[in-house]
Design a protein around this nucleic acid. Sequence first.
DNA 1: GCCAACGTTGGC
DNA 2: GCCAACGTTGGC
Length: 154
Amino acid sequence: MPRHWLIKSEPDVYSIDDLQRDGSTCWEGIRNYQARNYIRDDMAEGDLAIYYHSRSKPPAAVGIARVSRAGYPDHHAWQADHDYFDPKASPDNPIWMMMDVAFFERFAQPISLAQLKADPALEGMLVTQKGQRLSVQPVEPVHFDRVVALGRGG
DNA sequence: GCCAACGTTGGC
DNA sequence: GCCAACGTTGGC
């Protein structure tokens, strides 16, 4: 059964507009083991993810992306001249994973973090919790549906 | 730009 | 295996 997710990106680095323009992109540079494990073990092609802008004013859920290729080794990790270089990684021991995501939908209205926090239907959603820094998070189906409804203007 | 929260590293 | 130091994330 497909699962639901939330993925964070700083809009200055790669926004939903960039994704819409490009159609799809490789979701690279994940250097956190828990997020890596989700990509490696749980995220499947076709899964949908809320696209979330972090470090923006305000931070907000802005649309939906679709996993277009499930996890595969992040080859940037063993390229010494790359920003995401990790000396412990190698082709035999990739350590880190990336995936491809495709543009799926842009919300009619962004839903700010304050709105997400204020909505009783979203109580317990990880992104609303203090100190939650995971850039790839699982989302409960009911929470996912609620955020999408809000984003579409319902 | 500040700084609290968190994950990782490395000395012991 | 503990924990202080460090680097990063991300809301504010």
